[in-house]
Design a protein around this nucleic acid. Structure first.
Lengths: 154, 154
DNA sequence: CCACAGTCGTTCGGTACCTAACAACATATT
DNA sequence: AATATGTTGTTAGGTACCGAACGACTGTGG
């Protein structure tokens, strides 16, 4: 029946994964809004504050976003004076990113939105069920990614 | 240890929910790209093709997006000549949306990306595990949404 | 009947993502 | 050394999301 099929769509694991992602984003955005930071800007600061100076190119791989996307985000952080971007002395194509003094100062004031989200969402949940959910999501993601790869080959 | 905590973050159900969402989006975008349609544009056509004319304001609730967002999407579809937007005769504030002849023609050619995604991602998976995953995601989403509501009250 | 509050759609400015094309630079090949 | 190939970052153009503010309209209380 078409009706059953439709119900399935709206109640599938995939649909709930999307809803959870959007709920998380909403919480994260609301925490970061007072500081005028977007979520990806936060991730970049997070990395630079905790792991030290990083090549922009490595950040692309770590954050799993496109070069073009990161380019704009870095430009914003530089404009705000929170991050410093300089060409690498060895390979002049690459850019070294480094948190500024003023960036460090802001970082100290910032709450950790990820901690809050994980605590709010999953505290007290059954670890066995969490493990199953994780595996289901992981498998599904893998399958979709394989599908994309195959599509590119053909 | 900080290290353990970090691992947790990157391997949490939340992180996998995000990855699954992005993998799904990538598949959906790649299917729809040849037709020059975005995913939300597809949802709007889907609704208008299968359920008939709909008030723009009801679509906001069904698709769970902001009025502002839908406004732009509808404008795009109208510009492409796929959708017709007319003021309601009773309440002149509201807009009635209706698929055009040319929209219907396009719709017939379109594959169903959601079917493909669900099949690729979950076919053959253990229904019991899917049910657990669904429940875990649902509960977490609910908790985060409650947290947002409480935040708004305070 | 008229001012006021609420609803609906739009516009504006901002974030975050994508692809495609490009310039600058680095390295491998001949 | 000169040319071809690959990498890195940027820019341009597009989609999709958000909040805030505004105009047009509706319905209600005084």
């Amino acid at each position: 029946m078409v009706y059953e099929r439709e119900n399935l769509k709206h109640d599938s694991v995939g649909a709930w994964a999307k809803r959870l992602y959007f709920a998380s984003r909403a919480v994260m955005d609301s925490i970061l809004r007072p500081y005028e930071l977007g979520s990806t800007q936060w991730y970049v600061l997070y990395r630079l504050a905790n792991e030290g100076p990083t090549m922009q190119r490595d950040l692309v791989r770590m954050l799993q976003i496109e070069r073009a996307t990161l380019s704009g985000i870095v430009a914003t952080l530089v404009r705000k004076g929170l991050v410093d971007q300089t060409p690498d002395s060895v390979d002049q194509r690459q850019r070294m990113l480094r948190i500024t003094r003023s960036g460090k100062k802001l970082w100290k004031e910032l709450p950790d939105p990820i901690d809050l989200i994980l605590t709010t969402a999953f505290d007290g949940a059954d670890p066995a069920e969490l493990a199953i959910a994780r595996r289901v999501l992981q498998t599904a993601t893998q399958r979709l990614n394989n599908h994309i790869l195959e599509g590119n080959q053909a």
